[in-house]
Design a protein around this nucleic acid. Structure first.
Lengths: 185, 185
DNA sequence: TCTATGAAAAAATGTGGAAAATTTTCATAG
DNA sequence: CTATGAAAATTTTCCACATTTTTTCATAGA
């Protein structure tokens, strides 16, 4: 599968996750629907400038659109090496999120999250999703619907449409695997 | 939510994962459809003997049906502590699988797998699922459609309906988080 | 009295067809 | 050679109806 196709599929997945139509997206970008359709199917390749605008529209780092390229031929779409994970959602500097899934086209997303010491989520989050999180290392404070939990390495939790927030008041990073369905990125 | 309801929901999830109807399941158990319906909704509680037969029918350990009980009230259905994970799929002694998800009722399942040194899967597996796996520690040899990969801690891989098999020829356990959608247990 | 059954009622799921929405194609202007 | 925009194609969304599956509940049996 060509890089253009893979790139297009990721863009399509990002759009779908936001329940946006080609029409709406093309309006926001000031481009035609036909053009976007071609981009998403890899029949045409967007310029760097286009990509920058798409990344901005979806609030993901531009770098998300690269890195697919780098894996060896036979690992493409199957294996993601630890060092080659793509970064997403660079909103919060206290939280680093990288993509475990090879791309965004599945029914769920798996994200590797590192919560730095002292970091705290900016605002209470509530999404129409099911999220299961496994804490690989560190400790994390978590509130689900005002109920507080302290999560230690090896513990896991699930959020199903409830509001939640987190904080890492401890002095080591908390590292988690975060599974979200349906995709939000 | 009462224990009877939770138990019933897990039983229903197991049945659904196998695309079985109440009718078919009740035949296999030699019980009535109405009775099963009541069990699955927690209106009635199966005897230990019933449970044993259900576990056997689904090829899961009887212990899967316990342990939900033990978590503190406010953690039920939300938090699964490392020490309280329930074991599933006890087929292969070289592989220990425990449930990260609080129950089986989600669109996907998250499983904590430990592949013991020297262990190897008995037969090639092929399922109509998407599976994303993250290796927490150790090393694992993996074959997807005859292509071999050596997966190290921090790496991840995805299987989408392809056949695969694995082996741990190394001398330390490989520990992985396995996400499967739709559920198979 | 309590439990499981089986038939009736209710609910959920599947089907086919038509309309609407979305996406793809492609001739053409820039 | 690239992007546009209108036409064509495809996909999605409703319905109405049939079928399947699940739930309810009166009753027989323990």
């Amino acid at each position: 599968m060509s890089n253009a196709v893979k790139l297009g599929q990721d863009i399509r997945a990002l759009r779908k996750a936001r329940k946006m139509t080609l029409e709406k997206m093309s309006q926001q970008l000031g481009r035609s629907v036909g053009w976007l359709s071609q981009i998403e199917r890899g029949l045409s390749v967007p310029t760097m400038e286009d990509l920058r605008e798409i990344a901005s529209l979806f609030d993901v780092p531009l770098s998300l659109f690269f890195g697919t390229t780098e894996a060896p031929e036979n690992e493409q779409g199957r294996v993601v090496r630890a060092a080659a994970r793509r970064q997403i959602g660079a909103y919060d500097s206290g939280l680093v999120e990288t993509l475990i899934s090879p791309d965004l086209t599945d029914d769920f997303e798996v994200i590797h999250s590192t919560f730095k010491p002292g970091a705290e989520i900016a605002e209470i989050t509530k999404r129409p999703t099911t999220e299961v999180v496994y804490l690989i290392s560190g400790t994390l404070d978590l509130w689900i619907e005002d109920e507080k939990y302290t999560i230690s390495a090896g513990d896991s939790f699930r959020i199903r449409g409830d509001s939640y927030r987190w904080a890492n008041p401890y002095d080591i990073p908390a590292v988690a695997l975060w599974v979200i369905s349906p995709p939000v990125y």
